[in-house]
C-alpha cells in the first residue's frame, strides 16, 4: 500500500528491539469498518523513547497497543527479539508479556480499588515468580525507586493522590524488568506540577533500568521533552518521523506545522484550511493523502496518490508530496 513505506526503518541498526511493518488495525462497527491504523511501520531501538503524537482519533493509542497485541493487528508484522508477535498463540504470547509492559492514562482506573498497593505491584512477581530471578526485596526497591514509601504497601489505591497512583502504575510496569513500556498518555490526567514529577521519573527509570518507552501524547511540549524520536500520526497514517529536536526545528509535513502553530502561546498562524476542514470519517477516509482535505498545500496529486515516506535530510522522514522546506515555524513560549 502506498503512503506508508519503510524508508524510515533502521534495518542496519543491530540494536533494533521492535520492528513494526505495515501494521493495519481495523474494527467492525455497525456502520462499516473503522480504519484505525492503516499500514504503519516503525521501529524502536533499545533504550530509546519513541514519542507518538497526533490528535484524538489519529490511531496513536491503537498503534502502540497493537505492538503488544492488545488488540491484535488485522495485518502486518510486529517483530520483537526475532519473533513475530502476530504469529504467536495466546499462551506463547502470554510468555512474552513480561517484556512488554504498559502504563495507562487514568491513574485511578488502572489500579484495582480492592487490592493493596504491594499486591498490585507484586502481581507480576506472583505470576512469574517461578522464574526465580526476583526476590521480595524487589518490591521495596521499586517502590523506593518510584518514590512511594514502602511502609505504605498495605494501603489501598484510593488513599493515594493521582500522581502517586501513577507512580504505583510505573512500579507495576517495571517489576518484571521489561524491555519496552507503552506509556499511553500517562500524564494527561495530572496537574502540571505532578506531570513534571512523572516525566522526570520516567526519564530516571529509563536510565536506571535501560527500558525503551513508547510514549503517546497529544501534547507536543511533553512529547518533545521526553522523546528521542517522534512519529506524527494523522488518521491512521504516519506523517513524519524525526529526532525530537530536529522535528521541532524543521517540521516538514503541513500537519506537523499546523500542530506546532497550535501550541498555546505560539504566535504562528494556523492555516484557515485546518480550521474550516472537519476531521474526515475514519470509516470512509479520503483517497490519496488522508490530510488533503485540510492541507493548505494540497494539489491534485494529493487527492489521487498517496505519498510514500521519504528522507528529507538526515534522520528525518516525511510522507508528503509537497514537504515544507521553507521557513520553519517559530515556536516560542
Amino acid at each position: 500500500m502506498a503512503g506508508t513505506g519503510t524508508a524510515h526503518l533502521r534495518d542496519g541498526d543491530p540494536n533494533v528491539l521492535v520492528r513494526v511493518e505495515d501494521m493495519v488495525v481495523e474494527f467492525s462497527i455497525s456502520s462499516g469498518t473503522v480504519h484505525a491504523v492503516s499500514g504503519v511501520s516503525f521501529d524502536i531501538v533499545a533504550g530509546e523513547t519513541l514519542g507518538i503524537v497526533g490528535e484524538s482519533g489519529c490511531g496513536k493509542s491503537t498503534t502502540a497497543r497493537a505492538v503488544i497485541q492488545m488488540p491484535r493487528p488485522t495485518s502486518g508484522s510486529v517483530t520483537f527479539n526475532g519473533t513475530d508477535l502476530t504469529q504467536l498463540g495466546n499462551e506463547e504470547l502470554r510468555k512474552v508479556r513480561p517484556d512488554l509492559q504498559m502504563i495507562f492514562q487514568d491513574p485511578i482506573s488502572s489500579l484495582n480499588p480492592r487490592r493493596t498497593v504491594s499486591d498490585i505491584i507484586g502481581e507480576g512477581l506472583r505470576v512469574w515468580g517461578a522464574r526465580g530471578q526476583w526476590t521480595s526485596d524487589r518490591l521495596d526497591e521499586l517502590m523506593e525507586a518510584v518514590g512511594i514509601d514502602p511502609r505504605f504497601g498495605e494501603r489501598k489505591p484510593h488513599q493515594f493522590s493521582g500522581g502517586q497512583c501513577q507512580r504505583i502504575s510505573i512500579a507495576r510496569a517495571l517489576v518484571l524488568d521489561p524491555k519496552v513500556i507503552i506509556c499511553d498518555e500517562p500524564v494527561s490526567a495530572l496537574d502540571v506540577s505532578v506531570q513534571a514529577q512523572i516525566l522526570n521519573l520516567l526519564e530516571d527509570m529509563k536510565q536506571r533500568y535501560g527500558v525503551s518507552l513508547v510514549f503517546i501524547s497529544h501534547d507536543l511540549s511533553v512529547i518533545k521533552n521526553i522523546s528521542d524520536r517522534v512519529m506524527v500520526m494523522y488518521m491512521g497514517k504516519v506523517c513524519e518521523v524525526a529526532g525530537a529536536d530536529d522535528l521541532f526545528a524543521r517540521p516538514a509535513h503541513h500537519y506537523t506545522r499546523a500542530l506546532m502553530a497550535s501550541i498555546p502561546g505560539s504566535k504562528a498562524v494556523v492555516e484557515a484550511s485546518m480550521i474550516e476542514g472537519e476531521l474526515p470519517s475514519a470509516i470512509n477516509p479520503p483517497t490519496g493523502c488522508r490530510f488533503n482535505t485540510r492541507c493548505p498545500a494540497a494539489t491534485d496529486i494529493c487527492r489521487s496518490e498517496e505519498p510514500t515516506i521519504e528522507a528529507v535530510g538526515g534522520d528525518h522522514y516525511v510522507a508528503c508530496h509537497h514537504p515544507a522546506t521553507e521557513t520553519p515555524v517559530t515556536v516560542e513560549s
Binding site: S193, Q195, A196, I226, D228, S333
Partner: peptide, 15 residues
C-alpha cells in the same frame, strides 16, 4: 515545572 516547546528535548523539568 512545565515542559516548553522551545527548550531542547530531555530538558530536566523542575517539579
Amino acid at each position: 515545572s512545565i515542559p516548553r516547546p522551545d527548550l531542547p528535548s530531555h530538558t530536566r523539568l523542575h517539579p
